[in-house]
Design a protein around this nucleic acid. Structure first.
Lengths: 145, 145
DNA sequence: GCATAATTGAAAAATTTTTTCAATTTAGCT
DNA sequence: AGCTAAATTGAAAAAATTTTTCAATTATGC
């Protein structure tokens, strides 16, 4: 069942603003966006949208488990719809965030101290921060001067 | 070298407000607290403190790497000073957050898709959300009625 | 003790998140 | 296609959170 059908079945109306946000995530299957970023992009389209609607649709989709909220060093909430287990790698110097698939996530998960049947797991995330290669090189270049 | 000596060496003055926040973290080596929570606790002490000072000291300690910011589902920033790799387990139903040490963190880290020498890693975190045993039981009990 | 430079605290400002409510839109029913 | 009820929207206000400002205070080295 498609996401749209699934929403309909839950009695959730497929209004224009909601469809716009749904499409946004469909067109951006990877990446993470703050509510304001999504709003800024969508409001310029023919059919406009309010900030409130982006906000509410994101909350709704999050509650339904179709997107997920993440927070990076810069603090405020971002949403992503890539729910396959992946790694977030953030550079604390330039702020860039990379995503890398965790194809071996089961192996990793099994190493965690969580007994079977204890938690009904809905989300598993791994975040690593550090200084990326480019920023390391920049610092070195500066110091050489 | 103790944290206090280390701060002094960096030219950072050990003022009373800073000492209060330092002591707070010393007395609460595990756990995670929002700035406001720390403020609410500290302001009732003989020597009072302002919100701004808690805020600034946390920012300072974070920048120096003595504490770390984390964000849970409820969104706003919490600080923790347990920097040993550990797992955050959050129940999305009752909101409770548990910490569990990752004694085998190196084994886990080595499974991540990060080539050696690519990132200068400063932080490694694993977060799992789900429904804890108690909340699962609650739901079952309700439905049995 | 003094000088001075860092730090504080209160308040204002900025930013982000959430709620309110009248107006509009949707989906189901004729 | 039009009608109706109920859900949803958007603008604005409210609430919550984070950050900055600046005069007053305090810590540190001389």
């Amino acid at each position: 069942m498609s996401l749209k059908e699934s929403l309909k079945q839950k009695g959730i109306r497929l209004s224009k603003p909601r469809l716009m946000v749904l499409e946004f995530f469909e067109n951006n299957p990877s990446g993470h966006f703050s509510i304001n970023e999504i709003y800024e992009i969508l409001k310029t389209q023919k059919q406009s949208i309010s900030f409130t609607s982006v906000y509410r649709t994101c909350k709704l989709l999050e509650k339904l488990g179709y997107i997920r909220a993440i927070t990076f060093e810069e603090r405020h909430v971002h949403y992503e719809c890539n729910l396959t287990p992946h790694l977030h790698l953030q550079c604390i110097s330039c702020g860039k965030v990379e995503e890398r698939d965790l194809t071996n996530w089961e192996k990793i998960f099994n190493l965690l101290p969580i007994p079977k049947n204890e938690y009904l797991v809905t989300c598993f995330r791994v975040q690593v921060s550090g200084i990326c290669k480019e920023c390391q090189d920049k610092v070195n270049t500066k110091e050489e001067k």
